[in-house]
Design a protein around this nucleic acid. Structure first.
Lengths: 338, 338
DNA sequence: ACCGGCTGTCGAACCGGTTCGCGTGAAGTG
DNA sequence: CACTTCACGCGAACCGGTTCGACAGCCGGT
């Protein structure tokens, strides 16, 4: 069931079959039909490896995400899903590559062995050797997130700084004066994860602007850590009346900690942050938050990558998203304020 | 940077380079070193497409999951993550294919174009044309979930029937007599999704055995639907004191509905079901549930597939998992019972 | 000195497509 | 009727690996 067999049965040469299929040269209506009939009968489909070898394109894009030995957050996984579907719409397949560094075996496979035409990188760090490496090679890629100096790189990112600032201003407007910040795990912050750093910057800046008293915390990506973290917050400053979080996975634990401490949300305590909309609606009361548009970001990343693949010399493009805060039910005025 | 270039620079033939790399024929220590040095200098890696074409293996496995136009549940996404990592450990890449039917373009690409050596299928239906098709072709594949007649198929599955039965018995033991069942959306039930059907069977059977009064509900995969569903349950039979759910995504909404109705969990109302452990620990009170071992299942599926690929004529194998119920905090005796 | 076997290497064929240059027969033109 | 033009199809080369058969050179044995 290869192209030679089709050619033989249709009584034409291999090249004619190829042209009939690709349309890159005219083929008479007559022979085209003859060929098509044989193909339909045998259910022939051209071998992807052979095609890739011949024309140098695999029609596959790589999706590089960090190996999670730990577990995945809902956001990461939403990206994967949306990238796969957006790519399918462009007739690209998606190859998963769990690699954190450019020296990973998995990463080397993608690039060195030319398994993919381009790549989408997730979980970007401010200084990211994978991104630098790809830029150096001029390898078509798009990052979800941006490094410290994203010039010349194609990316789609979230303006964590602005989003967290908006959260802080929202709380300050409601009268909150003592506010805690619940960040991702310290290990990720130290590794230089973009969202953790930019979010922290936004928090620091806005809190200073509004003259707030703050506490800053790193919190593990799970419910138990969230609960522990909340206990620490109230222990350090029992007068805290609100928190901002980037940590989706800890959210349930934070709520639990508040309930255990007898703080009613939003009457006694306000909670907000940057979280995927789906999760914000899961907790009770529903979370007032800047909703991470994970699906849109995945789609945009694919759009950009395809554009770059079609047009290798186009100048770098990017999308910086800053969705508005969705007012739900987890924030309110400080007790005693009107 | 191809094998010919390496050969030229090392002063040997292309076949010698190939043998030096694969070890399939002896090569003198001397020339091996010469070749290795050139390879290291140039950072050469053999082209995956060429290799796949020559030896007929792509070192890639396909992961087929339904296109989610709707959104993904936490479980599905956990599978994807764990499959990718387990595959990497075996030096396989994972190709994502969002397809629901064997006629999907995406599905045809995987098989017809020989992009993968084998496939793992998720979200199995009791009658599943994809599975039938693969079995007919004797294409190496493993399903996560099992069809109505899984003989001859390789699979790893969850014993939903037994798990839901265990949940019902747990509730009955606590004295509950009026129990509701919250299933996945009706659309999925009608499509024949395995978990929805087998779970329902288990519920029906166990409830009959214990002489319980039951209500059965289909519920959308999101928090809002969960809340609505709970309102319906209490409207239909206000004396209901417990529910069993398969619907992870609705869980937050069910809890919210209970809170709105003034039912305290677990004092006035018990909740249990089949849910990934991570989610069970997110809600407050933490859910007593049969924890879906999504990571383990993904890993086992890859193990089976690799075994099948290494050994094409081995008889079909499978793993049926039935994790015990984890007692947490969402169930308790009926009010008035001791 | 001759033969057999072993080791290490080479050349050629092959995997299944794509693409380029050329030939052929029919149609169009003066 | 000879001459260009064009549409159509063919063969060969190529993409970058793998693998098979052959063979050269060296060894030890008789």
């Amino acid at each position: 069931m290869n192209i030679g067999e089709i050619a033989r049965r249709a009584g034409v040469s291999r090249s004619t079959v190829s042209y009939a299929l690709s349309g890159k040269r005219p083929v008479s209506e007559d022979t085209r039909r003859k060929i098509q009939r044989v193909i339909d009968e045998l259910g022939y489909r051209p071998n992807a490896s052979a095609r890739a070898l011949a024309n140098g394109r695999t029609s596959t894009i790589g999706l590089v995400f960090p190996p999670a030995g730990n577990h995945y957050t809902g956001m990461q996984l939403d990206f994967i899903g949306s990238v796969a579907e957006a790519a399918a719409a462009y007739d690209y397949d998606v190859l998963l590559s769990p690699s954190g560094a450019d020296s990973d075996r998995s990463f080397q496979r993608l690039l060195g062995e030319r398994r993919v035409d381009g790549a989408i990188l997730m979980e970007i760090r401010l200084e990211d050797d994978r991104v630098d490496h790809l830029a150096e090679l001029d390898f078509p890629s798009v990052t979800i997130g941006r490094t410290a100096r994203p010039g010349g790189v194609w990316w789609v990112g979230l303006d964590h700084t602005a989003l967290v600032e908006a959260c802080v201003h929202h709380l300050a407007d409601l009268g909150h004066r003592r506010v805690a910040f619940v960040n991702r795990p310290e290990q990720l912050l130290r590794a230089g994860y973009e969202s953790a750093h930019r979010g922290l910057d936004g928090f620091t800046k806005a809190a200073a602007e509004r003259g707030l008293t703050v506490g800053m915390y790193n919190c593990g990506d799970d419910a138990a850590s969230g609960q522990t973290c909340l206990e620490r917050i109230l222990h350090d400053d029992p007068a805290t009346t609100a928190l901002v979080t980037l940590n989706e996975a800890a959210l349930g634990g934070l709520y639990r900690g508040l309930a255990k401490a007898g703080r009613h949300v939003p009457r006694d305590f306000s909670v907000t942050g940057v979280v995927a909309g789906r999760w914000a609606e899961t907790v009770t009361p529903q979370l007032t938050a800047a909703d991470v548009p994970a699906e849109e970001m995945g789609r945009l990343a694919v759009d950009l990558l395809v554009e770059r693949l079609d047009n290798p010399h186009a100048p770098a493009r990017h999308h910086l998203l800053a969705p508005p805060i969705s007012l739900r039910a987890s924030t309110g005025p400080v007790f005693g304020t009107s």
